[in-house]
Design a protein around this nucleic acid. Sequence first.
DNA 1: AGGATCGTTGACAGCGCTACCAGCAACGAC
DNA 2: GTCGTTGCTGGTAGCGCTGTCAACGATCCT
Lengths: 366, 366
Amino acid sequence: MGRKRTKSGKIRLAEVAELAGVSPITASRFFRNPEALSVAKRTRVESAANELGYVPNLAARALASQRTEVIGVLIPSLTNNVFSDVLRGIYDAYEGSRYSIQLSNTRYSILQEERLLRLFLAQKPAGLIVTGIDQTTESRAMLDAADCPIVQIMEIGPNPVDMMIGFSHYDAARAAIAHLFAQGHRKIGFIGARMDPRVQRRLDGYVSAMKDAGLFEQRLVVTTATPTSVTLGGALFTDLLAREPGIDAVFCANDDLALGVLFECRRREIAIPEQIAIVGFNDLEFMASAVPTLTSVRTNRYEMGNKAATMLIEAIDGRRPEQSVLDLGFKVIERQSSSSRHQDSRPAVSGGGAQNKMVALPSGHD
Amino acid sequence: MGRKRTKSGKIRLAEVAELAGVSPITASRFFRNPEALSVAKRTRVESAANELGYVPNLAARALASQRTEVIGVLIPSLTNNVFSDVLRGIYDAYEGSRYSIQLSNTRYSILQEERLLRLFLAQKPAGLIVTGIDQTTESRAMLDAADCPIVQIMEIGPNPVDMMIGFSHYDAARAAIAHLFAQGHRKIGFIGARMDPRVQRRLDGYVSAMKDAGLFEQRLVVTTATPTSVTLGGALFTDLLAREPGIDAVFCANDDLALGVLFECRRREIAIPEQIAIVGFNDLEFMASAVPTLTSVRTNRYEMGNKAATMLIEAIDGRRPEQSVLDLGFKVIERQSSSSRHQDSRPAVSGGGAQNKMVALPSGHD
DNA sequence: AGGATCGTTGACAGCGCTACCAGCAACGAC
DNA sequence: GTCGTTGCTGGTAGCGCTGTCAACGATCCT
């Protein structure tokens, strides 16, 4: 016996086809590949669909076509400003496309990531965006076996699963330290929080730059697994000062920490940059507006998300990009907090960034 | 002639049923309502599913059952810290539930919201979370006609579509101004950016409080439609000072603006709070850590998202909450930037917020 | 002119799951 | 002992769409 369930009441493709005087399959084609129809039928179907207010049933489409139009996005944090910029880039790229985004938060756990990956892959996504290059072997195997395009974002490294877009955190950190060296700083501390893989690589870059200069000392490094915050920046800086009162600069693994250091210096009446120089990472908006303005390493977060999404869509549509690994580079934006030239504190209320000087260009030209 | 398409290769429910020695329909029930099975069959199906690694096909389920397990979430911005906290609350609540989240960004446009709403509703979501109470009449009609639970978040107001969770931005602004009055301030400026409906209501609260005290002057108000930023805070404050050099306090519509004002004061060597007091809105993390620490109105953003999601799930499952409108209130967190008691600038590196004093409690007891 | 090619259209048979109803055994009430 | 009643299980028939193939006329080539 059939079901008595109420017909959803919605317009179906068949109704549209009937009104347009074509077969259902022709109407179906109109929505997927209108070019394939003759102009006459195309307009007939189009007006019929408009007249009836037809909306395709995505579940039926997914079932029949054996694929979804869902893009899975796995990011480690929803709180972090960095990821909200990336996300905005991603969402902007999908706007108006037929794909929809399924977002999940791994909370910086690769096990959680593995779990979510399994979940996503089971639904046969059209594509996948994952953060970073540090997956469990299990995750890696699933990604390798996945039959959809995949983009890894936030950093670049060897052995991409498929496509990859980001920059070298290691090189970026080295460039920041090189900048501090150029300004005459020698005893440079490092503070880092959360210590996720990318922060770890910034630390690695710092360590290598310091070692190259024969200046590395373990006690110059203060890190914690705690999530980052402005307050934490002040606390870590306090620790650093206690360990090594003689430092003349601090490289902060992100801008929130840098802002915390700035406030802590103010509290302690330490002059920036005269007594201590500060360099942050990411170049969030407030860095250009702080007093003194704060030097930071600019990363192209919005572009990273946007480009990743664009590349993914193109790959799904069968147009693979020429180069599957894209280095978006970084720039050290030099500002007052690390400038030995004592730029005067202009009342530059708006337009921060105009007077920025580029110190290093795209990474990874090796 | 049938299709030759490769069978997806995936395990289907029928295979599980066969291995378990039950009918497909019984296996189906196991996944939706295991209680309905006898214990014997339940364990048989369970172990069969585990053995085969069965994963349900959501598209087929959605098609057959005529409903999805997707929750639509419409927010105006992905950049704003405020919404990332709300989102985190929402995602946390859905973690592990069978629902998935479909997020869209209205970019503060009610027309965009209407478009997205139409898109969402067409897919028959299990529930909907929308931001605010200012929808187009068309949107409102669609929401009223929607046959799924709906939660409006971020603020409360008359005529909820269904459920509602938030607080009164009007009352919160009034409380902030009352606090400034209590500290002896009279010439209180207002700066606001973006001027979305909620910021507008904060302005309304400011205006009414000032008028009540006979202190309102139009030139004390500086607003712009530009998206908010720290830099913009400095610029708006500069405008305000130019218009009315005699102000003794500023109420900022959000914390980014407040931070910008702080930096601008530092640039101009204006003493806080002696010459000018500052009050922000939202109580972001950095407010407790700034120098001087910044007074703000704390809003329960994470809880708002989390509670909204929880209420929505319960409503979907047929357990509607007793009260459909929930006021989460706010608190004025008094800090140095508006304290006439001249709290000494302690080196309170971590733990900001411990010394906070609550000034006003949940809103909307009228 | 005949055949090959192209562009366009349609028929058919499912995709994997669940709503509906019916059946059946076990049980208690009368 | 008969008649509900309850609890569990299964059969049937789709949900609305699309992949595959075949057929058709129009166009092109030799």
